[in-house]
Design a protein around this nucleic acid. Structure first.
Length: 286
DNA sequence: CTTACATCCTGATTGC
DNA sequence: TGCAATCAGGATGTAA
């Protein structure tokens, strides 16, 4: 589950290698034709001008006005060494160097669009501010949260309030800010929104400093694991005692994703929310 | 417009 | 032990 810190780690590794290089030929390998791998051949002959990141997407602007868009999905790896299996894309560079895209579960994407034209990628097209930029302000964050009645965790993971936060860091940030993952987004107070904004920034910064989180699949370009796993307080810790209060962390499903939180620390308003069954609240007729 | 949910895919884990 | 069923999850398409 590469999220912003993992993608940023990959970006930093790719940048010195790829910037200024010319793509001789980019082609699908063992991957079905379709929108996830659209227009790769258009990259042929274009020079890579930068290796940028937007949320969890890698964006490589090319010299003739196109842009290579890469999303690692769940299991995507970018590597200069030919993988032994699940090879989806091969990019031939000059001097016989190659960039390989391996992706066992095929949730990733690797395609070419006209620069800045993300209409075919709705999440990227409507993506919120970068969390580590000055655009991610408390005012804006609170304002956006007030527009949704969805559970705060589900809404954050849409990438609209802020870019790059997925399942792991959503759980971590909500735990740090002591906000219940099922709290309707619009009920989060300005003060709590600020705490959450700060928690998101802090946890992402700390994870980037550790080169991301590694467990089952993720490896950076050099094949090294990230070091942030041991610093996770919530994600994957259901059943363990809360580091703040000792209460056993609970696990529920929010937005179809496994969610770990402290039922004592993380509340909605003054009330503790009961854990367990699926939440059907807020289903008023329109 | 919004929110909910099925879907993709396959290695890892759990269950019998 | 061995095989089958279940789980995991980012983005997206579709339904309501």
């Amino acid at each position: 589950m590469p999220e912003l810190p993992e993608v940023e780690t990959v970006r930093r590794e790719l940048e010195p290698w790829l910037v200024g290089r010319t793509i001789v030929r980019a082609r699908r390998a063992d991957a079905p034709a379709g929108p996830k791998y659209h227009h790769l051949e258009r990259a042929d002959g274009q020079r890579i001008q930068a290796v940028n990141r937007r949320g969890k997407f890698l964006l490589l602007p090319l010299s003739r006005g196109d842009e290579l868009v890469i999303h690692l999905g769940m299991t995507g790896h970018l590597t200069p060494h030919r993988p032994e299996s699940h090879l989806r894309v091969v990019v031939d560079l000059e001097k016989k160097e190659r960039l390989y895209f391996q992706d066992a579960r095929r949730f990733g994407r690797f395609l070419v669009v006209r620069a800045g034209r993300y209409e075919s990628l709705p999440t990227l097209h409507h993506m919120g501010p970068e969390p580590l930029s000055s655009a991610f302000t408390g005012d804006h964050f609170h304002h956006v949260l007030r527009t949704s009645r969805a559970p705060i965790k589900a809404f954050i993971m849409t990438q609209r309030p802020v870019a790059g936060v997925g399942n792991i860091y959503a759980d971590e940030a909500l735990w740090r800010a002591r906000i219940h993952p099922l709290a309707p987004a619009h009920t989060v107070s300005r003060r709590k929104a600020d705490e959450l904004r700060t928690a998101i920034v802090d946890v992402l910064r700390a994870s980037i400093a550790a080169q991301g989180t590694t467990f089952s699949d993720y490896r950076n370009v050099n094949g090294e694991p990230g070091d942030f796993f041991s610093e996770l307080a919530a994600y994957g810790h259901d059943g363990d005692p809360c580091q703040r209060c000792g209460t056993k962390l609970a696990r529920i499903i929010v937005g179809q994703r496994g969610t770990c939180f402290c039922p004592r620390c993380q509340r909605v308003g003054k009330q503790r929310i009961t854990v367990g069954r699926a939440d059907k609240a807020g289903r008023r007729s329109a």
